[in-house]
């Protein structure tokens, strides 16, 4: 059976708007963020994302797990780009060194040297702001959208009935998968299985994950078959569908949609003029 995200009605900025309007805003926000590499522009998006998170009224306790996951993700990738400079090469051609740090160890006689440059630093900073803005806006959604409305939201955004219901099921599949994974983990632990003890080569390690991956996968397939049967037995997909929930746009929703469209158009215009590319304060590199 499908379970849902931990949604609660809240007096939050997200729930102040019609969910469709918010999704449009969300999509435009994501697209706009992706256009920029300029730290100054990204800071604006960062501030917006941060304030939405603060005014989402979702307690830290509720979101902690999600944030920890994303936090590790952000830090790991930013650190990686900072250390290797990988990915940034397309954005800047020359580097201005701050200093070289020789690492206090060597690998097979090769002593790695960290080249810390202004470009790398700013690239990593931009990366952090960007990923944070994207992740933060995304992670708030499941806590703020009423699961009972998923279907009608997507229908209202113009998807056909079948796809809209499909999206509804997909949104709920993710937390359901999480629950099933936990159940399998528990069942195998009770048989003396310890994930921590997995060792050996890569192939061996993957093989030793079978007790987790096989039941979870098979269960997912079996339950999707059940879902299809249950839908078929109640005449799904035979024609036009009525949705018992209704959504009505208010004035504020039109405002938000207008703002979102304006935002994305501006961003496109700016980027056509070459504004918003990777930026390092010129004072630092001259």
């Amino acid at each position: 059976m499908l379970v849902t995200w931990r949604y609660k009605p809240r007096k939050s900025i997200i729930q102040f708007f019609d969910p469709r309007a918010w999704i449009i805003f969300y999509a435009c926000f994501i697209a706009a963020t992706v256009f920029f590499w300029d730290l100054r522009f990204l800071s604006i998006f960062f501030v917006v994302a941060l304030s939405v998170a603060i005014f989402s009224r979702i307690g830290w306790k509720e979101m902690r797990r999600g944030w920890l996951f994303i936090g590790v993700f952000i830090v790991f990738f930013s650190l990686l780009t900072f250390l290797t400079g990988r990915g940034g090469v397309e954005l800047y051609t020359s580097e201005h060194l701050i200093r070289n740090i020789s690492l206090p160890f060597s690998i097979f006689g090769w002593q790695p040297i960290l080249k810390i440059s202004w470009e790398k630093t700013f690239y990593a900073l931009s990366m952090i702001l960007r990923v944070f803005s994207l992740a933060s806006m995304t992670i708030l959604l499941p806590y703020s959208l009423n699961p009972a409305l998923y279907g009608i939201i997507f229908k209202g955004l113009g998807l056909p009935d079948k796809f809209a219901y499909g999206m509804d099921l997909t949104m709920r599949f993710i937390p359901t998968f999480g629950r099933d994974f936990q159940l399998t983990m528990d069942a195998q632990k009770a048989r003396g299985y310890e994930l921590e003890k997995i060792s050996g080569g890569l192939f061996k390690q993957v093989q030793k994950l079978a007790p987790l991956m096989v039941p979870v996968t098979i269960h997912a397939i079996a339950s999707s078959e059940d879902i299809i049967d249950a839908m078929d037995l109640r005449a799904f997909g035979i024609g036009k569908r009525t949705w018992i929930q209704e959504l009505h746009y208010q004035k504020r929703d039109y405002c938000l949609i207008a703002f979102s469209i304006l935002m994305i158009l501006t961003v496109i215009a700016l980027s056509l003029f070459g504004i918003g590319k990777f930026w390092v304060p010129s004072a630092l590199i001259t």
């Binding site: 159940l183 048989r191 007790p211 991956m213 039941p215 098979i218």
Partner: peptide
């Protein structure tokens, strides 16, 4: 030893 309610979560 603990036998779970649903076998489908453990067989692999």
């Amino acid at each position: 030893g603990y036998v779970f309610q649903s076998p489908s979560h453990m067989l692999f």
